[in-house]
């Protein structure tokens, strides 16, 4: 038995460190000013895919849509055990909402890969929407199992999985191919040092070209590309055209939702009454709350 696992991941700004300065005047996020990390639940999806490969065989492909710098999460995926990676990148993707994003990912999946299972993290910490997974499944006309905790069984025809529901869990069975969204119920493995030594050299064409300072001879680049490919260090890039995506349905153009405005969160000014931590202070507070019928 052997399966093709396709994992979609996202490089996200570390939202714990967002400040007002990280916003551009037009209300969009200045990603360049923020530390970029591997979206946490996407690491859980990758971990599950690698575990499935170890249990049932197959090949793990990791893909991300993002700017050229997102190649970094693909290297991170290689360190952890991904077999193949792909960077879906094009200026025309900029400004995509979840609908345009899921459309783009669906084109990539349908037109450039073979898959039995698509795995996504439940949600990304920059938006917390949890929408792209189910939207992608709809675009590919696939069934979905959301909030997967554990895969119990897998064969060529179907999968059995345990998923979280409100206040408990469900065991479900579903035929392949399908989309799984994964929650943080496994422990993602750390990068392997051996793989890191090898794959830290992995590069996209853009990265390779940027590295050349003395000459940018096209033939020389092509020769190097062959070398990187032969060593398994090539990170393939896919443009909108490569994914056969309709230009009208990607990026800002393909996004029905528009941002009207953005405000930084301002603390509501409250007239706080300071209460002394003494017995008398606290007794008067409790008395006041009882008098106002707030405490019974």
């Amino acid at each position: 038995m052997s399966f093709n696992y396709l994992v979609f991941v996202k490089q996200v700004p570390d939202t714990k460190n967002v400040t007002g300065q990280a916003m551009k005047p037009d209300g969009t996020v200045n990603r360049a000013a923020l530390p970029a990390i591997f979206n946490p639940e996407d690491l859980n999806a990758l971990e599950l895919a690698i575990q499935l490969k170890e249990r049932f065989g197959g090949e793990v492909t990791v893909a991300t849509m993002g700017p050229p710098a997102a190649a970094e999460v693909l290297r991170q995926a290689l360190y952890r055990g991904a077999d193949k990676v792909a960077l879906i990148t094009d200026r025309a993707f900029a400004g995509a909402d979840t609908l345009a994003t899921s459309y783009t990912l669906s084109c990539f999946a349908k037109n450039t890969t073979k898959f039995d299972l698509i795995l996504c993290g439940r949600q990304a910490i920059d938006g917390d929407t949890a929408q792209v997974g189910p939207q992608l499944a709809e675009k590919l006309d696939l069934p979905q199992i959301c909030y997967v905790e554990e895969v119990l069984a897998l064969d060529k025809k179907k999968i059995r999985a345990r998923r979280a529901i409100d206040g408990g869990f469900e065991t479900v069975e579903c035929p392949l191919p399908l989309m799984l969204s994964v929650i943080d119920s496994n422990e993602p493995r750390p990068p392997s040092v051996k793989r890191m030594m090898k794959y830290k050299k992995a590069k996209t064409r853009a990265e390779l070209a940027a590295k050349r300072s003395s000459y940018t001879d096209a033939e020389e680049l092509a020769r190097q590309e062959q070398e990187y490919r032969a060593k398994g260090l090539w990170i393939e890039e896919f443009s909108a055209a490569d994914a056969k995506a309709d230009p009208e349905r990607i990026g800002l153009k393909g996004s029905p939702t528009k941002v009207k405005n953005i405000e930084s969160v301002v603390l509501k000014a409250s007239e706080m009454k300071k209460v002394e931590a003494s017995e008398a202070g606290i007794r008067s507070l409790v008395g006041e709350l009882i008098k106002e019928h707030i405490l019974g």
Partner: peptide, 23 residues
């Protein structure tokens, strides 16, 4: 925005080509 709503709404929105804003 319950577990059910969050897996259902995106599928509906995708099929209707409608924008969807979470939470």
């Amino acid at each position: 925005a319950t577990p059910k709503g969050r897996e259902l709404a995106p599928r509906v929105a995708s099929a209707l080509l409608a924008g969807l804003t979470a939470d």
